[in-house]
């Protein structure tokens, strides 16, 4: 009688710990997916903010047509992107155009005194940060998840139920790689 109970107990313990590991893996995978969708939400929010910002700033900055054009162009490219590769390139371009715009704004004190513009600027700064932090958070989650499915004993469960490794997400930032071009046209 006793050996049966002991063997049964051990089997029950193993099953319970397997269930625990499986649930932990599922939770981690969901967190990775959730972190990914966070990035999407913030990118979309940035696209929504830009028309308002351009509208408000246009009246004050007649001489910066080139800046506005590059922002609008990058925005429509980013919104029309089909693949992840295209999207990360276009979003990188948009980031560059926006940071250039923010630098130019410093030359227009009237615009900087406009309450409406100030609140738009705060929203845009925050959205830029949120994109960066969402990416950071996503990569952190991927690290936890990948560690978990590679380490013993969870790697056994991961192998049984086909949990696969995830890739890190890097936004292509043209400004960080290219030498700045100076033009006098």
């Amino acid at each position: 009688m006793w050996p049966l109970i002991i063997v049964g107990g051990i089997i029950l313990l193993v099953i319970m710990s397997l269930v625990g590991i499986f649930n932990a893996l599922v939770r981690l995978r969901n967190q990775v997916d959730n972190a990914w969708s966070q990035i999407d939400v913030q990118l979309k929010r940035r696209h929504d903010l830009i028309p308002n910002l351009v509208e408000t700033a246009k009246g004050y900055m007649q001489h910066e047509r080139g800046t506005f054009e590059s922002i609008t162009k990058a925005r429509s490219e980013a919104m029309g992107a089909r693949t992840v590769d295209q999207a990360s390139k276009a979003e990188g371009m948009l980031s560059d155009a926006l940071s250039k715009f923010m630098l130019v704004v410093e030359n227009y004190p009237d615009l900087k005194a406009n309450q409406n513009f100030l609140s738009l600027q705060e929203e845009l700064t925050s959205t830029e940060n949120k994109i960066a932090f969402a990416r950071q958070g996503y990569n952190d989650q991927v690290l936890f998840y990948n560690n978990k499915i590679q380490m013993f004993p969870s790697n056994v469960v991961a192998g049984m139920f086909n949990f696969t490794k995830r890739e890190f997400f890097e936004i292509e930032n043209a400004a960080e790689r290219e030498v700045p071009k100076v033009s006098f046209s």
Binding site: A35, E123, S126, N129, K130, F133, A134, G137, D140
Partner: peptide, 12 residues
């Protein structure tokens, strides 16, 4: 509010 939300995103 924005800063709290940024950190909420960063901390997942």
């Amino acid at each position: 509010f924005n800063v709290v939300e940024e950190m909420k995103i960063a901390a997942n």
